[in-house]
Design a protein around this nucleic acid. Structure first.
Length: 412
RNA sequence: GUGGGCGUAGCUCAACUGGUUAGAGUGUCGGGUUGUGGCCCCGAAGGUUGAGGGUUCAAGUCCCUUCGCUCACCCCA
């Protein structure tokens, strides 16, 4: 029997699971604090939902989990959340602006590599019904909060699909998207090869000279007048400055894969690693599913990528609360004391194995607890608990009536 | 999907050119000490060497298939 997880998928055990939950928990809390509400959609969708998206069409079958069920229905596992959101938006009356978040696993039939999985967690937020750049700005603020909560400093690079269309249209009329894809490789492949690839497609390769300068000023000079794209970038840059979002920078080379983007697009990076998230504006997508034309902006945060980054940097999640054990004490007494503390919202795990004191402290320490509670005969008599900080060895004896004092010691 | 590298206890690795019951460290479990730990001492469990087939007197070691990991391409979080 094959007991390995399915190709490209993984179990998260112990500390790994805690880290994953830590990230998700932080994000959930932050999303809610900005007024985003949760949305749940099934992991399985009709294949048509994904086929609709842009010119990729049937070809997307190669990159996703596609299958037929016993009723010969063509189905697919979601490979992102946006299509499902668009389905909901197109088929239900939503109060606008509608802001939702969704955290869950998505699936892609890629060939696995480090940091590339077939099942990975993504955390998405989207704003429907806001046409102005305020939506993009709020998304940047959420991104900032999310990464700050993990003590990480992201870089966000952005561009405008409108601007790209305008610029590329002058070099590759009708082939803008192909040109974008190729230009996207500029930091990976040698210039000569990029040039060759462009020429193969019949695209004027002089576009490289302009894009590689990566300068908004140069692009403005090139276009020689204000356009929708240049205005969008200018306005966005101003708003970023006003709102002190200095981790967000223009990058002329950024294109992004999905074809449904219509305005600002952006990507999130940590150091020099792979992208840990990205998104943009997609004002036309909902109407392609038969809904009203609805402006929309969103971001997908790559929880699994962020997870890997934290792990590589030795991140650990401690165990909140208290590990409680007794010394020759009746277990029922322990259960009772634990329940009193839990009623006060203190997390309490108790020793179910009646281990001895040193083994218990060792256990708590290995499990990542910072505090242990000790109940011995002395404590029982005095109706107290001994709380020990196992990081610095300090301990004190506190009356069980002084709940607030216990709380203040244990919550950190 | 194309092309390389790799799979030995939970983890990190060892086992000369194929040669006895596949070892170690760490971790896990149990015990000793014990109203104060991460040290120490004793003991145990844990591997059909990823799986299946083949060559051979003999395979962890060679060959084929398959599963998984990994690197590049593709694509992307």
């Amino acid at each position: 029997m094959n007991l390995q997880p399915v190709r490209g998928m993984r179990d998260l055990v112990g500390q790994d699971a805690l880290i994953q939950e830590f990230i998700e928990g932080n994000f959930r809390r932050i999303f809610a604090s900005f007024g985003y509400a949760p949305l749940y959609t099934p992991a399985v969708e009709n294949f048509d939902l994904f086929k609709i998206k842009g010119s990729v069409g049937e070809a997307i079958k190669e990159e996703i989990y596609y299958f037929k069920d016993k009723g010969e229905r063509e189905l697919a596992l979601r490979f992102e959340f946006t299509a499902s959101l668009a389905r909901v938006a197109a088929t239900t009356q939503l109060k606008m602006p509608f802001k939702r978040y969704q955290i869950g696993e998505v699936y892609r039939y890629d060939r696995p590599q480090a940091k590339r999985y077939r099942a990975f967690t993504q955390a998405d937020i989207d704003i429907l019904g806001v046409g102005g750049l305020e939506a993009e700005i709020e998304i940047m603020q959420v991104i900032k909060s999310c990464f700050e909560s993990l003590k990480l400093k992201p870089k966000v690079i952005f561009n405008s699909r409108k601007l790209l269309q305008e610029v590329l249209g002058k070099f590759a009329l009708g082939k803008e998207i192909e040109a974008m894809r190729i230009l996207d490789k500029m930091d990976k492949v040698e210039k000569k090869e990029v040039k060759l690839m462009l020429e193969e497609k019949g695209i004027d390769s002089r576009v490289i000279e302009l894009i590689e300068k990566n300068s908004f000023e140069e692009i403005q000079k090139f276009l020689d007048k204000e356009t929708q794209g240049t205005k969008e970038i200018k306005d966005f840059i101003n708003l970023l400055k006003e709102n002190e979002l200095d981790f967000v920078e223009f990058d002329a080379r950024l294109a992004r894969g999905f074809e449904y983007y219509t305005g600002i697009v952006f990507e999130i990076k940590l150091d020099n690693g792979p992208s840990v998230g990205g998104g943009g504006r997609f004002d036309k997508l909902i109407s392609t599913y038969g809904g009203q034309e609805t402006p929309a902006v969103g971001v997908g945060l790559g929880v699994s990528r962020i997870f890997d980054y934290l792990k590589e940097n030795g991140f650990m999640v401690g165990n909140q609360g208290l590990y409680l054990f007794g010394m020759n004490v009746n277990s029922t007494k322990l259960f009772k004391i634990a329940n009193i503390l839990r009623k006060e919202n203190i997390f309490v795990e108790i020793d179910l194995n009646k281990k001895n004191l040193s083994k218990n402290i060792e256990f708590a320490q290995k499990k990542g607890y910072k505090f242990v509670g000790i109940i011995g005969e002395n404590e029982l008599k005095a109706n107290t608990i001994t709380i020990k900080n196992i990081e610095n060895g300090e301990q004190e004896n506190i009356s069980l009536k002084e709940i607030e004092k216990i709380k203040s010691r244990v919550n950190w």
